[in-house]
């Protein structure tokens, strides 16, 4: 089952709307940073990107819940699901952090850390709800 995680991830990404939300937000944040006229803009934009990382997970909430549920009832080990969550969060975070490359590597890493934490916490919460209720939850 563990070897199937990349395949599941690719399916989730291709069928879900989360990556599309991330890409659109990345483009907008990039433009905002290019046209910025205030030193505070990157910090506020970082807050917006973090919110967008949570939103990109929530937009596919039902999909993620179902995938997690199916993985659980098919006997996937928790580590496999956690790997899936980590990979998905990292991918979302990388896409959302790309605009901060233009501000320097440090900014990129900060953005990467914040967005990946936000995404993984949201996905982790979904996983916990599914595991506790043994059903597909609704938002």
């Amino acid at each position: 089952m563990g070897s199937g995680i990349p395949l599941i991830l690719s399916r989730v990404i291709s069928r879900g709307s989360g990556l599309k939300v991330s890409v659109v937000t990345t483009i907008n944040v990039s433009l905002t940073l290019i046209f910025r006229s205030n030193a505070l803009v990157p910090y506020v934009a970082l807050a917006l990107s973090t919110t967008a990382s949570i939103a990109s997970v929530i937009v596919d909430f039902g999909f993620h819940s179902m995938i997690t549920y199916v993985l659980l009832i098919h006997g996937s080990r928790p580590n496999h699901i956690k790997t899936y969550i980590a990979l998905h969060s990292l991918l979302t975070a990388v896409v959302l952090s790309l605009p901060y490359v233009m501000l320097g590597f440090g900014s990129f890493l900060t953005a990467l850390a914040l967005t990946s934490i936000a995404a993984s916490l949201t996905l982790g919460l979904t996983y916990r709800v599914v595991r506790k209720s043994a059903s597909v939850p609704q938002i």
Partner: peptide, 8 residues
């Protein structure tokens, strides 16, 4: 940006 995040 705000609309995309809120709509999602």
């Amino acid at each position: 940006t705000a609309s995309v995040v809120i709509i999602s």
